[in-house]
Design a protein around this nucleic acid. Structure first.
Length: 233
DNA sequence: TCATTAATTTTCT
DNA sequence: AGAAAATTAATGA
């Protein structure tokens, strides 16, 4: 009666796996190209915008401001994905987009993107899918923030990453990823120092090992079981 | 338990 | 060498 309807591991939803639209590269000549150095503002808070942007290389971050001037991270716009900034009303958007590292970005005016949609329905579907992915991501993230403690959010993220991208070889999993601890912290809504401490603890227990562009998972079942534990580290 | 800050060390380019 | 990322410790909510 009780636990039957509870969703158990595996929990398949992967935060921030946004649809890529490489197909848009065919139309880059219609767009306006700009290069942003690290830290530069791509779309300022409070500015009206009407375009779809495509990140050819680099990575952007989207954050939302609050009254006290602080800003909270929302999600990344990685390369080969799009971002939509279409404000139909005059209200100022509280959202800000900035370059996390040096990025080359192409801006499509609304008229042009509509033309492209006309002749290339795959692009259209890709854009819709991407926006849908983002709304789902935000739903999942708000759920995680309210239901789960930080350590379990980090563990669950790694677990899902392993399930979706890990390759099983020689008795352990290899995930090819260049994620930094800072990025994992942003995605999971935790502090990078917490990520660092947790990873150190997991390494000491021979559960996993992280290098610059790989994560090795030696004990996935142990990792999974720790998601619901209250950890000290 | 975890965020935050700051100081320090390690790793990357 | 300089920048970026990670670690460590201390403090406080």
């Amino acid at each position: 009666m009780d636990d039957i309807n509870k969703k158990q591991i595996p929990r398949p939803y992967m935060l921030e796996n946004f649809e890529q639209t490489e197909r848009l590269e065919k139309y880059l000549h219609l767009a306006h190209k700009r290069i942003f150095p690290k830290g530069a503002i791509v779309q300022a808070q409070g500015k009206n915008a009407n375009s779809i942007l495509y990140v050819k290389s680099g990575c952007l971050g989207v954050s939302i401001g609050s009254d006290d001037g602080c800003t909270k991270f929302l999600f990344h716009i990685n390369e080969k994905t799009i971002g939509a900034a279409i404000n139909s009303n005059e209200d100022n958007s509280e959202v800000q987009v900035y370059a996390i590292r040096k990025s080359t970005v192409y801006f499509f005016a609304l008229e042009d993107i509509l033309e492209i949609f006309d002749e290339d329905k795959q692009v259209f579907l890709g854009v819709i899918q991407n926006i849908l992915d983002k709304s789902y991501c935000l739903m999942a993230k708000t759920r995680d923030l309210s239901y789960y403690r930080p350590s379990s959010r980090i563990l669950r993220f790694i677990y899902n990453l392993c399930i979706s991208e890990g390759k099983f070889v020689d008795n352990y999993y290899i995930i090819n990823t260049k994620l930094t601890q800072k990025t994992i912290g942003d995605i999971t809504g935790t502090h990078y120092v917490s990520v660092s401490k947790l990873f150190k603890m997991l390494e000491e227990q021979r559960i996993l090992k992280k290098t610059k562009d790989r994560i090795y998972i030696y004990n996935l079942s142990k990792l999974a079981s720790m998601i619901d534990e209250v950890l000290k580290y």
